[in-house]
């Protein structure tokens, strides 16, 4: 689905990532760890075309990203659910409309089914907050809303950047359970996180591969993970 071959990314004159090899196949589950500033978010952004590699090749759903025009990248992003680190919402729209935004922009003429939308919001614990504006939400609520938005289109790949950073343990387990459920449906999942407890909890439920970025390179994490 998504493949990175010999990908490097330079920023401000220095290399942030070098020679990254990564394949997100259908049904795969990956965790991405590493110290802050190591390039985890950058790697995720390379996967969904928000950044272009300075070297190497990114292939998304069988098409090389550099060969896609803006519309092509937009089409590819509709098949990728992204939970951004800082969530990013349209602050003037209520939570329900923000969650349904991927459906609205898909230009299929469809709108989110109100029943399904309510169910999804209830599942992430935001059933009572559907009409709230994003600035009124807590950090944890924002992350849950971002996750709901990422999965509403039933994407083939889910990329999550610290999805449980601001939620309590119980909620992080619920979010993890949702991601595992989606993975069992054949979706590829890549989660960038510092949360080692989350990784251990996941590994007891799903066959997950743990990757680590260190010294600009992507490697398999140690056996302790």
């Amino acid at each position: 689905m998504i493949e990175l071959e010999g990908v490097s990314y330079s920023y401000g004159g220095g290399d942030l990532l070098q020679g990254v090899e990564l394949t997100l196949a259908p049904g795969s589950f990956h965790f991405l760890t590493g110290p802050s500033g190591a390039g985890k978010t950058t790697l995720l952004r390379l996967c969904y075309g928000a950044l272009r590699p300075t070297a190497g090749r990114v292939t998304v759903f069988g098409r090389e990203l550099s060969a896609l025009d803006r519309d092509g990248v937009a089409q590819a992003r509709r098949r990728i659910g992204v939970v951004h680190q800082d969530c990013q919402f349209l602050d003037h729209l209520p939570v329900a409309e923000n969650v349904a935004l991927p459906v609205a922009v898909s230009e299929t003429g469809q709108t989110a089914d109100p029943g399904n939308l309510s169910e999804l919001l209830a599942w992430v614990g935001l059933g009572a907050r559907a009409d709230a504006r994003p600035p009124e939400l807590s950090g944890g609520e924002r992350q849950r809303a971002a996750l709901a938005r990422a999965v509403i289109m039933s994407p083939e790949v889910i990329l999550a950047d610290e999805p449980t950073g601001n939620v309590d343990w119980e909620m992080s387990q619920r979010l993890l359970h949702l991601l595992i459920e989606l993975n069992r449906l054949g979706k590829a999942v890549l989660i960038a996180t510092h949360d080692l407890m989350l990784i251990r909890a996941a590994k007891s439920q799903v066959q997950a591969r743990v990757l680590r970025i260190a010294d600009r390179r992507l490697t398999a994490a140690g056996a302790d993970l």
């Binding site: 803006r70 519309d71 937009a74 992003r77 509709r78 990013q88 349209l90 935004l101 898909s106 230009e107």
Partner: peptide
């Protein structure tokens, strides 16, 4: 710019 960034993130085409 933030609105545009969000819209692109969720797959909006520039034409939209």
């Amino acid at each position: 710019a933030q609105v545009i960034q969000v819209l692109r993130l969720v797959g909006a085409r520039d034409a939209y």
